[in-house]
Design a protein around this nucleic acid. Structure first.
Length: 588
RNA sequence: GGUCCCAUAGCUCAGCUGGAUAGAGCAACAGAUUUCUAAUCUGUAGGUCAUAGGUUCGAAUCCUAUUGGGAUCACCA
């Protein structure tokens, strides 16, 4: 509604002889209890008018009403100028802006962005924390696409290291040749089982050594299990055939398992990076940093950067024996990713426990003079907590992703059958529907919350299906599709309606805010903005649906108009939910 | 100890770059279905926006301090 702002600038110029910048003015949605759709706050303008807010509002209102044909009226309450636009304006908006297929489709902005997310360890199955990560990453990627970016979804798989060797060792010792095929177990779960087993045995050995008088610290170092795992890691690094072969086999099991979970979650990737390929990278950057004087060497030979001037600490970037640390590797990987794609922006979807790490990483790259470092962004999200506290894989206090997905489908099934809506569905249709609804509930539950807030998940309290939830929005869509399936749209009766009811106007207003909402969500990297928006649209439609009959409308023109309004609503709901990675059913 | 994040109704959360009487959902209570799907809609009740200052015509929003919760600070990523 830039035309209102422009006209207001004109009004201020004409009335008060002041040149105003369009950027200084902003419109806000009119509160529901007042007449009008958009509101100008007049307080900031009183210093030009030298009149009361009410008087200023009235003068500008009069000017606008005469000047702009789309404005049908206004009222001023306590310095708020509420503007009503004509029904013709809203009707025209529906037909010429919202209904066409290119609504809310941004033109390519010529920018490339990489979204790195998921990034699992290959020693255990995915849990609820990963689910939040995956859903966030996928959704942010979709939102950026919708905002005009070219998006690369990347997954940096942590496929090597001591933790992987732990699973491998335990399998070697106790596995008895078990495979996913022989046990029927999902590969990632099978491997995870041995990771837990390792820890159990390891703890036993620690206890034993302590009973012989070793301190806990000594015992942790000296336990045979951990020594063997470290030996295995060394063998891996030197390319020992047997170890490499076992490593490959077990990783394949895990990938197979992850693939299934990813599919159930509905997420995908354009590019995989593997740490086994990247873990040695970054040493050349350390050299580069030493040359440029950004890094310095301590007496023992370890390499550091001094960030105290930036309010941070000194940070280690390379060990004394010149082996890499996490930071070394991430510096190298960042360069590799940039070399591969030359993207303008790069988003790391990683939990907030790594806030400090990424702050340092980005700062170092900037200090090294990498121009692309300004496009790096850490999308930091809060942990998912259980009522019992933090999830810990090793202790088994996790909500497993696959279990959770199954439970959600099961709950969806119970809810749906209790409502008696699926009697005539085929078995396959039912399964499909339960999956759609169950995942809709879960995804919406996790995405409607601001990413940076921590999330409490109570496994005993099932995720809601009513109210501000995914299924509520899915249901709204199904309802619309149901109405539309009963009639044929008459495209010839176009745009002949002349006046609107409040429910219709409010709905068009809500729909019209879709493009700006996408832009906002893209800038803020926040699916929650989309989630809360689509809820408003669904509520708005339900109200309209309840108040006004579509198929029994008073005349054919009204009926066709309401059908088109329904079509537009279904489209916006569908597109919004897609941005969240949520499917909407035709019926439910 | 340093740094960062969070704190809004009994519970889970919105509240955009400062704007009107702080909004939803759940839970509680009262209603709505001969009419397009009641996973819906309408209403009632529920608030010291953690606390104290400051900036401003105006603060849940910005600044400072305090309290509480969480994370992190040299080899797990």
């Amino acid at each position: 509604m830039d035309f209102i702002i422009e006209a207001t600038v004109k009004a201020v110029k004409a009335l008060y002889q002041t040149d105003l910048n369009a950027a200084d003015l902003s419109l806000q949605p009119t509160r529901k209890e007042f007449e009008g759709q958009t509101t100008i706050v007049t307080f900031p303008l009183t210093k030009f008018s030298r009149k009361s807010p009410e008087q200023t509002g009235t003068e500008i209102g009069e000017f606008l009403k005469n000047e702009v044909k789309e404005i049908s009226g206004f009222n001023v309450i306590k310095g708020f100028l509420n503007i009503s636009l004509t029904d013709a304006f809203w009707i025209d908006k529906l037909y010429t802006e919202i209904l066409p297929d290119n609504f809310a489709v941004s033109k390519p902005n010529g920018k490339k962005v990489m979204v790195e997310y998921s990034s699992p360890n290959t020693n255990k199955p995915l849990h609820l924390g990963h689910v939040r990560n995956n859903l966030l990453g996928y959704s942010v990627a979709e939102i950026l696409k919708a905002a005009g970016y070219e998006v690369i979804k990347a997954n940096l798989v942590n496929d090597r290291g001591i933790h992987i060797c732990k699973s491998m060792l335990a399998w070697q010792k106790f596995g008895d040749g078990e495979t996913p095929e022989s046990t029927g177990e999902k590969g990632d779960h099978l491997v995870g089982k041995y990771y837990v087993l390792f820890d159990k045995e390891y703890k036993k050995q620690i206890e034993e050594l302590r009973s012989f008088g070793q301190t806990e610290e000594e015992a942790k170092k000296n336990a045979p299990m951990i020594k063997e795992a470290q030996e295995m890691l060394q063998k891996w690094e030197t390319g020992n055939d047997e170890v490499i072969s076992l490593w490959k086999t077990m990783n394949l099991w895990v990938y197979d398992g992850f693939g299934k979970t990813y599919k159930a979650l509905g997420v995908d990737f354009d590019k995989f990076y593997y740490e086994s390929d990247t873990y040695l990278l970054g040493k050349d950057i350390v050299d580069e940093g030493l040359e440029k004087g950004v890094f310095f060497k301590k007496e023992d030979g370890s390499v550091w950067i001094d960030l105290t001037a930036d309010g941070l600490d000194e940070k280690l970037v390379l060990l004394a024996d010149s082996t890499s640390v996490y930071m070394t590797q991430d510096l190298g990987t960042a360069q590799l990713k940039y070399n591969d794609f030359h993207m303008n922006e790069s988003i790391y979807v990683v939990g907030n426990e790594q806030d400090y790490h990424f702050k340092v990483l980005f700062l170092i790259l900037q200090k090294l003079g990498k121009q692309w470092a300004t496009g790096l962004y850490h999308l930091s999200y809060g942990m998912v907590d259980l009522p019992s506290g933090k999830m810990k894989s090793r202790e088994g206090t996790v909500v497993d992703a696959d279990d959770l997905i199954n439970e959600m489908e099961q709950t969806a099934k119970e809810q749906t059958e209790a409502l008696g809506k699926v009697e005539e569905y085929s078995e396959e249709e039912k399964q499909q529907l339960f999956h759609t609804i169950g995942m809709g509930a879960l995804k919406y539950f996790l995405l409607k919350v601001d990413p940076k807030k921590r999330l409490l998940f109570d496994p005993n309290e099932s995720v809601d299906f009513q109210g501000h939830t995914g299924p509520f929005i899915q249901y709204t869509h199904a309802r619309i599709r149901s109405v539309l399936s009963r009639v044929e749209l008459n495209a010839t009766l176009k745009n002949e309606i002349t006046s609107l009811y409040a429910e219709e106007r409010d709905l068009i207003l809500a729909l019209s805010q879709f493009p700006e909402t996408i832009a906002l969500a893209a800038v803020g990297h926040s699916p929650a903005i989309i989630a809360n928006y689509v809820y408003e649209v669904a509520k708005s439609f339900n109200k309209f649906y309840h108040e006004k009959s579509i198929l029994q409308a008073e005349d054919e023109v009204t009926k066709q108009f309401r059908l088109q309004l329904s079509v537009a609503s279904a489209k916006v709901i569908n597109k919004s939910m897609k941005l969240l990675g949520i499917e909407v059913p035709e019926r439910m």
